[in-house]
Structure formats: C-alpha cells, structure tokens
Design a protein around this nucleic acid. Structure first.
Lengths: 221, 221
DNA sequence: TTCCTTCCTTAGCATTGTCTTAGGCTGCGG
DNA sequence: CCGCAGCCTAAGACAATGCTAAGGAAGGAA
C-alpha cells in the first residue's frame, strides 16, 4: 500500500509521514504541485493525500490536471478550516474525500481505510466472523445474534481485530491504529481495553499471543 | 430499469456508472444540461440522477424546464453545496430526493431503491415509524396522531433519522446531510437541534449512542 | 523451584461528550 | 423600523469514557 503525500508544511508533513509509516503504509512525501503531478502521472501510488494550500501551483489545479490525464487514483484532500469553497471545489475537481485541518491521526487512518475499502470495489460495510458481526456504517455489533453495546475505542479495537480475523495483530500495530502517533499512552491502556471488550463479548473471543499481540480466531466462540 | 445519469465530472461520472451497472441497472451517462433535457423529454428513462453543478446551464434549470414540459420521471439530485439550500431549491424545482456529495455507493443505491418503490405507488412520500409519520412531499409530521410543527432543520433531522429507523446514524453523517460540506458550524449545533426536536416530540423518541450518533427506534414512544 | 516478564483485573481520577439554558445575529413580514 | 421566527454560539452541569496506577496471576527460562 503506497501513499503519496503532498504537503508543503515541513512539520505537518513529517508528522503525517511518520504516523502513516507506523501504520505500515509506504509513504512518498512531496512538497510541491509540480512533482506531485508528475508522481500521480506515474500511477505508482495507491492513494494520494493532497493538501490544497500548496504554494505556487494550487492543489486544485494539480487534481484537475491529473484527472484530465485520466489518473483515477483515489485522492483524499486536506484543507484548512476556512477553505470553504475550496472544499467544495475539491470534490467537484474529483477528490474522493476531504478532511479539514486540524485533524486527528485516528480520523485520517479511518478515512484511508474507508477509501481503500471503497476502491477495492464493493464497499463492504459489514464484517462477519463466525458468530461475530460488525457494521462499519452504523457502528452496530452483534455477537451470537445479540446486539452488543460498545464504546468508540472498543469498537475500533474490534474492527481492527476482525479485519484480520484468524491472523495475529501485533500489539504495536493495534496501539498505532487506536491511538495514532501524537498520543503517547501508557503501555497497558490496550490491555485494559481488551479486557473491557472481552467482558462484553466473551473471554475466549479475543486471544492473546504472549509477547506479540492479539487475535480473533476464524471461528470465535 | 433505465437510469439517466447527468454528471459533468468524468471521474465521478464513470465511478457512478460502473457502480450502478454492477447493480444491474442500465445507465446512460450524459455530461451536459442540453442533452440531459433532450433525453428527459424522450421519457425513456425510469429515473434521473442529476448533478446540480453542471457547467453552462445549471442543473436546476434543466429540472425546472423538464417539469414545465410535464416530464414526471423521478429525479434524484446530487449536490456538493450546502445541504439545506440545495435541498430546498432542488425539491422546489421538482426533485424527488437529494444526495449530498460525497456519498457512498450504498447510500445512492438505497435512495434509488426507495425512489423506484415510491414511483410504483407502493410507498408514497410518507415514512411511517411506529407512532411517527413524516410526509416528504407536504413536509407534514404527526406524532401519536397529533400534527407537529417543525422548522426546516428539525424536519431534515427527523427525516434523516426516520429513513434509518432502528439503526444508528452517525453524528458525522447527520452533520453532513444537515449542513452539507460547509462544515463551519460549531460542534454542538447538532445537539441543540436534537434537543429542539426532542422537545417537540418526546425525549425518549430520539436516542443517543454516546460517541457515535443518534437513532430512532423501530417502535418510538 | 525461582525469578522475570507479560498480561489481567480493579479502582480512581481526569477528560470528553452530551444536555440544557441563555443570548445574540439574521432575514422576513407587518 | 420593529418584532418575531429560526438557528447559531457560548457556557455550565453532569455522566460516560478511557487513562494511569498498582497488585496479583500466569507463562517461560535457568
């Protein structure tokens, strides 16, 4: 998964790059419109994160130009809070989603996941793993046919685990997708969260692999 | 089932066309108002998907013109503008439903299904959820048999919730359909609105799911 | 066994989300 | 020009949430 980040602000750019790399995306960071356009024409990226406040050439122009060249890579536009019309223009110009600065890394990660799901064709809003079912759209979860009330964090954790059902999800990877980079949380926050989730489902549902992380088996009980 | 898609943006247009064809609709894609109007006059389409941000001739004009020519094909309007104004303008001009960009394909599919059902005369413009009833055409709302006076925003909120009765509607999704992309609105505007609506109905009718959003149960009290 | 690391569990407290009221701006009709 | 309806922001109260801390249990290695 290769992400093209187009952002002129050094601080923000490097922060985003680090955050995304920690989520195990490959990130190419470009700082101006010209090289961004060139890179988009190469079509090597799977997704483009485009800042609209670029110096010189406007981000919108880059987008329009790329679309004109039939580059159909999904583009997620980032814009400052007051760029009101810019946002609308961005979508008209062919952006697939937008994000208003400032945003949380968690939010960005969610949008990226949603976009990649969408571009893989059939937008699957529902993840089913045995007796577990999770609807990303309505945030509803059922376990053995019964609806389960989860908090936001619990939901995010369950989603991350269910998206990788049957496979081990590394502790580090979970912490990154739940808390992002800017938030340094204590090292047992995740454990507490796992415990809360287990209590609401069952204790066998979430399995621990000592020293590595957690997983939900293909056929949870 | 033949759908007329009127959209000038190449990227979005082809995306929608592909998505709809995958759902086994027949799609004719037109890129400008003039040919759209001509096609509507032919009355060969069962449904029209009309983008309001057309170049040259405005989408609204196309719609008004078609209605004047007694073309009564159902029209679903797509817009990137402020949710409310576009909604009012569009519906005034004779649209049957609207959708704010960006939207998910499933959302579009749901609206299309609902529109075709409605035009088959099965369900009219009325949404009924238990003791709640809302008429999209006349903007009338009754609760426990009594008519209720709602403002435009309150109506829009209630409609969004009733269309998803029994399911949770994300806060973000509500904000998007109420305020469109012009998201400069403070973050508790929605809460104040919910409060106003609850006061006019009852406080148990609109349920909150902390951290996610709101919902109206299948059987509201 | 013994020691050390990792994980589980509970409790306490700071943060955040939501509800509610109040106040002010805007546009429209008398 | 005034009054009113509609809808926003601001601010305080209060409860849910999610963190840290801390002690105990369980796994793994010598």
């Amino acid at each position: 998964m290769h992400i093209l980040l187009v952002e002129d602000d050094a601080q923000l750019g490097s922060a985003i790059q680090r955050a995304l790399e920690r989520l195990s995306y490959t990130v190419s960071w470009l700082r101006d419109g010209r090289s961004a356009l060139a890179a988009m024409r190469d079509r090597t990226a799977d997704l483009v994160l485009l800042d609209l406040g670029l110096p010189g050439r406007d981000g919108i122009e880059v987008l329009v130009e790329a679309r004109r060249a039939h580059v159909d890579t999904p583009v997620l536009v980032m814009t400052a809070r007051d760029g009101l019309t810019a946002r609308v223009d961005g979508l008209d110009a062919g952006a697939d989603d937008y994000l208003t600065k400032p945003f949380h890394v968690e939010e960005l990660a969610a949008r990226i996941r949603s976009l990649t799901r969408r571009m893989r064709g059939l937008a699957v809003n529902r993840i089913e793993v045995g007796v577990l079912s999770l609807d990303v759209g309505t945030s509803e979860v059922t376990f053995r046919g019964q609806p389960v009330d989860l908090t936001r964090r619990e939901f995010a954790l369950l989603q991350a685990l269910m998206e990788n059902a049957g496979r081990l999800v590394r502790r580090e990877s979970l912490e990154n997708s739940l808390y992002g980079l800017d938030h340094v949380v204590g090292n047992n926050a995740l454990e507490v969260l796992v415990h809360a989730l287990r209590r609401k489902l069952s204790f066998e549902t979430v399995r621990n692999v000592r020293g590595f992380g957690y997983m939900i088996p293909q056929d949870p009980k």
